[in-house]
Design a protein around this nucleic acid. Structure first.
Lengths: 222, 222
DNA sequence: GGTGATAATGACCGACCAGTCAGTCATATT
DNA sequence: AATATGACTGACTGGTCGGTCATTATCACC
């Protein structure tokens, strides 16, 4: 039995080497790295894990990425832009009210980040950021900085229309990002112990930020 | 030269073995571990670093802590309580307005956490939390849970007095913690690229949360 | 069906580090 | 002064893992 099964085992498990389009291989490796890093963090993830999950040998990973750091950096750099694109569109369209734009951003964030595995990636950036200045710098430049720019326009418009309960918010647009940030931390850290209703969190914050609809349209600034 | 300097070197660098009160040793090790973990993170900190910084040999650390995990867990568990004590007092005292209590909490947080090395510890908890469920659980139970309890009382009182612009906040007291959380992340991640005025951040949020003083005292709920 | 070019493999190397333990020595005790 | 104690030391071990490279498989094209 031993002999036979071993032989069969080997025959069956025989590695099918498969050449791939380099682009596709890269993507597969990145997908695998995403999963590994997301569930175990940077330090605890072994290159061999990444390779195994992608169904290839360790050496192959190094044909596509110079080292572990580069793999990580490339990974986290390629995850955020799409959302920001959406935001830009909302702002360009002046017929959309600021409140609606922000609420759409929150909805987008919930659907595309909080409720997907991307939330783990985002948390990873927060966690490992200080160890990877390049990542932190990239995120600030590409995401945060732009996001704040968009928010400033949006909040400025809202203030001009008298839609903000506290117009000074325009000067600290970071506040708008605080609830999403809290939700990321909470859901990845405390969710097992206490559930957080993020829908309610965001809705409540919106109601706090913007004046109620019924109090509007009776003159702006004053 | 070689001989002499070596001899002198040895003589000068001669390790002074020094016995200590175990309590004190423990404290020294914890202090050293604090510094090491804060500046390099959990994975990148070597037990030898911790020992060297405490001026002792590696083995000695293991006389006081069973392993690296235990050292870390013990460390982060012992950092948070004092602030919460203060908060408790503010709440007990009904003559203090809710707004003032929250603003004192923010001030305390800035002075005792944001502007000290403790901010790195707090960030460490956020970053490594998922790897140490015991830590996350401890923090939820001892800090978050209690903090939310205090906030619920405070916000409830504020709502009853008509001091909240949006009384629904009572149901999501987590929102009050969002700005401090943001400030921690920001200052430890993006500060090199863009300064955040935390004083202004907190003040603006307070002004958004609570109705302005001049609008008060003309009847509560309605 | 041969042949060069290239992708893929995985055994291997060496640096690194948590944790151990046999031995040392400062101090207390007698 | 002799002895006992146990806190302290640091060389060592066992294991892990990032990164390399000689070898092998696959493919495209003659």
């Amino acid at each position: 039995m031993t002999d036979q099964s071993v032989i069969f085992g080997i025959a069956m498990a025989e590695k099918r080497r498969e050449k791939r389009d380099p682009q596709q291989r890269r993507a597969e490796i990145l997908a695998s790295a995403f999963a590994c890093f997301a569930e175990r963090g940077f330090a605890a993830t072994r290159m061999e894990d990444v390779a195994a999950r992608a169904g290839i040998a360790k050496g192959t990973v190094y044909l596509h990425f110079p080292d572990k750091d580069a793999l990580f950096t490339e990974l986290v750099s390629g995850v955020a832009s799409p959302i920001l694109g959406q935001m830009g569109e909302f702002v360009a369209n002046e017929s959309i009210t600021p409140r609606f734009a922000v609420s759409m951003f929150y909805a987008l964030f919930r659907r595309e980040v909080l409720e997907t595995d991307r939330r783990h990636l985002l948390r990873l950036i927060l966690a490992e950021g200080p160890m990877f200045p390049a990542v932190a710098e990239f995120y600030h430049r590409e995401i945060i900085s732009r996001g704040l720019g968009v928010l400033r326009i949006l909040l400025g418009r809202a203030a001009a229309r008298g839609e903000l309960r506290n117009p000074k918010i325009v000067e600290t647009p970071q506040l708008v990002m605080a609830p999403p940030l809290l939700s990321i931390i909470w859901t990845t850290l405390f969710e097992p112990y206490e559930h957080l209703d993020t829908q309610k969190l965001f809705d409540t914050f919106l109601d706090t930020l913007f004046v109620p609809a019924e109090d509007l349209s009776e003159g702006g600034t004053q």
